[in-house]
């Protein structure tokens, strides 16, 4: 088990590196790197979670794309027969290219969000003197979704009691409006009360902020950032030359 949870800076540079190399590297290299990434994360703290997410999201998508590309590819000129099935050669190549990119990018992005919590990212941005409201939105966005869902279920329950048939389009529209109006009313009303509270807590203050716990990067963090940025530069240089 690797117990290293990195600093936001190397993590974000990792994400940048993944996104840029996802569009530059060749198919084979991307497959290889994806397998290496997966192996690396298999031994990580959140390894199981990462692998499960990839199984749930990436694999069905790749299978769908593979099937789609190999069977319906109108531009086909060469056909190959595998196991009695006539498949498009160009389609297979395109599918390989696309799936490699998806597996690589998605693995990287899922890993990124498991390496760092939104809270950690937000608190780093806070210390880098980004506006405090931006940090507030970033951190509270997901928390508010839970509130939204709780309220939604509540209102849905009560509207069902009042009777909410869902048979035709008109009834569905009525139901949507009947649920969304009280839901958004509650959320907006709450948000305007929250606005007063946050104003009173000093969210509009113009003074230079101080930080209780300054965020310090370790040498490992700096080294990792350096390696990733070096890799990005190499990729860009070779990508454009080749």
């Amino acid at each position: 088990m690797i117990r290293y949870l990195p600093h936001p800076v190397p993590t974000v540079s990792f994400l940048l590196c993944i996104i840029i190399s996802g569009f530059i590297l060749t198919t084979g290299v991307k497959y290889l790197l994806s397998v290496l990434l997966l192996l690396f994360f298999a031994f990580h703290i959140n390894g199981k979670k990462i692998l499960l997410t990839i199984l749930k999201i990436v694999i069905p998508l790749c299978i769908a794309i593979g099937l789609f590309m190999t069977f319906i590819y109108p531009e086909t000129e060469r056909w190959v027969t595998i196991g009695g099935m006539r498949l498009s050669h160009e389609g297979l190549t395109a599918a390989g290219d696309m799936t490699s990119r998806i597996i690589f990018l998605f693995t990287g992005i899922i890993a990124f969000f498991n390496l760092i919590t939104i809270q950690r990212l937000g608190s780093y941005l806070y210390q880098k003197n980004l506006p405090v409201w931006l940090v507030f939105i970033l951190i509270n966005g997901l928390k508010f979704v839970d509130r939204f869902r709780a309220k939604l279920n509540e209102i849905h329950f009560y509207q069902q009691i009042r009777g909410m048939p869902l048979e035709n389009v008109w009834q569905k529209w009525r139901a949507t409006v009947k649920i969304l109006i009280p839901l958004l009313y509650v959320m907006i009303e709450e948000s305007s009360n929250r606005a007063i509270a946050l104003e009173m807590r000093g969210f509009t203050a113009t003074a230079q902020r101080t930080a209780l716990q300054p965020d310090i990067q370790t040498t490992t963090d700096k080294l990792i950032t350096f390696v990733f940025f070096g890799f990005i530069i190499l990729l860009l240089v070779f990508g454009f030359i080749v």
Binding site: I137, L142, V145, R149, L152, S191, R194, A195
Partner: peptide, 20 residues
């Protein structure tokens, strides 16, 4: 404050509409 507070609600609505 009213604006950024509403923006947070907007994010929540965007993400929560899947459930609706």
């Amino acid at each position: 404050p009213p604006v950024f507070s509403l923006m947070t609600v907007g994010v929540a609505v965007n993400l929560g509409m899947g459930q609706v």
